[in-house]
Nucleic acid binder design. Structure first.
Lengths: 345, 345
DNA sequence: CTGAAAGCGCTTACAG
DNA sequence: CTGAAAGCGCTTACAG
């Protein structure tokens, strides 16, 4: 077994390399007999084409990229799996890149895409203006870019995200209906969607006539699921619990925080749901097997993935038509999955 | 902003493309001043090289591949993350490919590696002889291959796996010491390591003088974590539970099965650990937050990842020396993490 | 220290 | 329907 080139195959079959190439690409220029001859032979020798040569010549790679902050975050993981599954039914391959919430790594990831002739990018960017000029350049000259999840980014393109304020409003409203009015809102610091989340929270309180307390908003600063924020989180929660009017509900707005806070509340012997209602933001499939099972806000991951791919493929089809698209931002609805960590008093 | 080629940069600076290339690769042939001139300019214009051209010319890609059955399985996920982290400290890039336990997909994945000039592969193969000739060809002519996890594969190379029989022996022994003698051993059908697992299980029973019962071994056939095996699993467990001498311990040997079985036992109102001790095979970080927290057999994932990369890099260094290596198989030790799903009677 | 030139393995416009 | 030839953007052995 040895690796053949088109030239060598041509020599073996007394045909030119160009003819072999055309046959393998099923060109209408080549006769059926010649095609069969060539295909039989290439199959026999298990011809494996040289991807770099093809890509260099054509400028195409048949590969899309998905760029996420952390693949270990279950939402991003699910999203990746969904994209991966959808693309497996097309001719496109997919590569996964992580930024670790680091602008430099993001730039490297995008440059890798340019280097590798990537044909389309789906990205949840590090910050609202991260890699802005590079992304703009890519949109103009390299390939279409779709932004998901962190849709406050300034690039003008299609964006797919969720109705943060709406779902936080619903969750808050539900807790109030359950007679839980002293609600902690737990946020990851400096995330684009926080403004919208706080708005949903405040609006729900306001409409129910519940006074807003500044101290009930906890922001934790971390950039990786592996950052050690447990102590800080525990101390902030303890402080609130030891106040005269201890909170009786907690709404956690990221995946990472939800699991940590459950663990901490268990450790602090806070009874869930009796003493504290808990709603997490999470896509973990284990929510059902947690102790107690966790009521979660679930993002419509699959829908987001489908829409992202759909829009990207649309843009790929019209690739040479500048200003062809009216870019839109899609806000999808989340749902609340009720489990044992919430109940009425 | 526009994409430059070396030729264009040469024109701008009145230098030849070759000189630009050498300067960017920090060749000793180029003077310090010229290098500075070129680097300043390429930085200014944000020169992004064409990867395909480089790869075509050199036959190298600076990229390694990891091929796993399912990235959604937490062991493979952790392993991938570890490999990814280790390689981020080198010059190598990493691509992730999944086989979904499908030999055809595995072949495609490996061919993609060949096409893309991948320089090394770390794989957990589908079956003991899957893609054997292709893997052999790759080892001979393309790049080194390391096998991990499913180390019964017939390819002659370095392999990194675990001491299945030893850890299953320990877990079984522990259960017996806890006076749990009627132990279900739960296996995924047709996995290479099962022989060794069953041996560990039987040996521990034998040495403790506990009679072996064929019916206590349950094999479930599935190839994906998403396969719907819940009903089958539930019915098989129910059957055993309804026997005159109901089992009082369960040892689950895969990640997927461990979480499912916990869920089913909870559903069947079996009290854990009182009525049933449960040890799972799992790397999930949530084991602590499960209901009840799950005693697990944990694979030394990071060690396995480190060893895999170490061996691969060693082989890469000596790439042109055939028969340079005495291939070995490494069997690493697992540990048992005790949590609330096990206790003595 | 710099440059000219060949060539990696494909594809494709063009010729016949 | 098939082939000859140019060229994608790099690298590198060789010349000077």
């Amino acid at each position: 077994m040895k690796r053949f080139t088109l030239k060598e195959i041509g020599q073996q079959l007394n045909l030119s390399p160009g003819t072999i190439s055309k046959a393998l690409n099923d060109s209408h220029e080549i006769s059926a007999e010649t095609k069969k001859l060539i295909l039989d032979f290439t199959q026999k020798i298990n011809y494996i084409p040289n991807f770099s040569a093809k890509s260099l010549k054509t400028g195409r790679s048949n590969t899309l990229a998905i760029i996420v902050p952390f693949i270990s975050s279950s939402f991003f993981f699910d999203f990746y799996e969904d994209i991966s599954h959808i693309l497996s039914q097309t001719n496109y391959k997919l590569i996964l890149l992580q930024t670790f919430n680091d602008e430099k790594k993001e730039k490297e990831a995008l440059e890798l895409c340019v280097q590798s002739n990537i044909e389309g990018v789906i990205i949840s960017p590090v910050k609202n203006d991260s890699s802005l000029s590079l992304l703009f350049y890519m949109m103009e000259q390299v390939c279409p870019v779709i932004i998901f999840d962190r849709i406050n980014h300034q690039l003008d393109t299609f964006k797919i995200g969720i109705q943060n304020n709406k779902v936080i409003y619903q969750a808050t409203e539900e807790m109030i209906k359950n007679r839980r009015e002293n609600i902690i809102l737990l946020l990851c610091k400096d995330i684009g969607g926080n403004v919208s989340r706080i708005k949903g929270y405040k609006d729900a309180l306001f409409n129910a006539g519940v006074p807003f307390k500044e101290e009930n908003i906890i922001e934790i600063s971390y950039s990786s699921p592996k950052d050690n924020i447990d102590d800080e989180l525990e101390s902030k929660i303890s402080t609130l619990l030891n106040r005269p009017f201890a909170p009786n509900a907690l709404l956690s707005t990221t995946d990472t925080l939800s699991l940590k806070v459950l663990h901490i509340l268990n450790k602090l012997k806070v009874k869930i749901p009796d003493d504290m209602n808990l709603i997490g933001f999470s896509n973990t499939p284990f929510a059902n097997s947690l102790n107690p099972s966790l009521t979660t806000i679930t993002q419509p991951t699959q829908l987001m993935a489908e829409k992202s791919v759909e829009l990207l493929l649309q843009m790929l089809k019209k690739k040479n038509k500048k200003n062809y698209f009216e870019f839109e931002t899609y806000f999808l609805d989340c749902s609340i999955e009720h489990r044992k960590s919430t109940s009425s008093l």
